[in-house]
């Protein structure tokens, strides 16, 4: 008896349920492309925004829509991007890797402080108080906001309080660019070997009292550079990357080493003329 009841009751119940679900399925169905979930899973979940979207999911949506290409994601590895591209059947859309670069080299060993800053120990906070205590108004305050903001452990403050970017770890998410109150960071393709590590707009040797590695706007680099590679604007050299810039010449005669070159083996190198400053700096660092 109870067997019959059970079968009848449960059968009826499930039938009712199934019918209800079928109807609901028809009436209330909302379609969402399942590939969005898959693609989102394949993305690094860093939500860093380097792709230009607010997070990984919106980027995934745009990938599925075909509005953008996997290469936009600078955080994931080459292989991971390829997996997404294969899954969606699109090109990777390779973009050249960008890295953050700092336009200042004025560490505590070479740059002077005007005043002693007291208060919030962040660059953003310090920059509000007379621009921070640093002698050079444009220079790095060295309190490490960029180190703090970097989600990828790519920025570390060196012993002189200047951030060093690890090119391998940097994903060009742009957080440091945004956070730096002195706007010292720019995102540049790794292939850009030549850049100016100074941002002061002063001209002449006065600035050297504040910072030994400041650009004095002498213009030697512009003279030594081939063609229109370097022009002087606002007392600073401006590099025209559309020109062929695969030459170390411009840095050689720079008296302060404020224009630098990224050597594959040696790392960031400075010109012959500025060697004395680097040595001096090292010696000073040793003393302190």
């Amino acid at each position: 008896m109870s067997i019959l009841i059970a079968i009848a009751a449960l059968g009826g119940l499930t039938l009712l349920l199934a019918i209800m679900l079928v109807i609901a399925n028809r009436k209330l169905y909302v379609y969402e492309d399942p590939r969005i979930d898959v693609v989102e899973d394949l993305l690094p979940h860093a939500n860093c925004g380097a792709c230009g979207f607010p997070g990984c999911r919106p980027f995934a949506e745009s990938l599925v829509d075909g509005r953008s290409l996997p290469g936009k994601c600078t955080v994931s590895s080459e292989d991971e991007r390829q997996v997404i591209a294969n899954y969606l059947g699109v090109d990777v859309g390779a973009e050249e890797k960008l890295v953050a670069r700092l336009a200042c080299a004025g560490g505590t060993n070479v740059a002077r402080n005007r005043a002693t800053y007291q208060g919030m120990q962040t660059c953003q906070g310090a920059s509000l108080v007379s621009g921070g205590g640093k002698g050079c108004f444009w220079g790095c305050l060295g309190l490490g906001d960029c180190e703090e903001v970097c989600d990828f452990d790519a920025i570390h403050m060196d012993e002189h309080g200047i951030p060093q970017v690890d090119n391998d770890k940097c994903t060009a998410c742009g957080d440091c660019v945004e956070v730096c109150p002195k706007d010292l960071f720019t995102l540049q393709p790794v292939s850009h070997r030549l850049w100016v590590a100074c941002k002061n707009l002063e001209m002449g040797d006065d600035i050297l009292e504040e910072c030994e590695v400041a650009c004095t706007a002498c213009g030697k680099c512009a003279m030594d550079a081939p063609g229109n590679l370097i022009t002087m604007e606002n007392n600073l050299p401006v590099i025209n990357y559309s020109e062929n810039h695969n030459t170390k010449d411009p840095i050689q005669r720079c008296p302060t080493g404020s224009i630098v070159w990224l050597d594959e083996k040696l790392g960031v190198v400075k010109g012959r003329e500025s060697q004395k400053i680097i040595r001096k700096g090292e010696r000073m660092a040793g003393e302190s």
Binding site: S2, A9, L10, L21
Partner: peptide, 18 residues
């Protein structure tokens, strides 16, 4: 009413779930 207490759990969950 139908004297089937053993179906209590399953009916509860099914109806509620649906």
């Amino acid at each position: 009413a139908i004297n089937a207490p053993f179906l209590q759990l399953i009916s509860f969950i099914v109806v509620i779930a649906s």
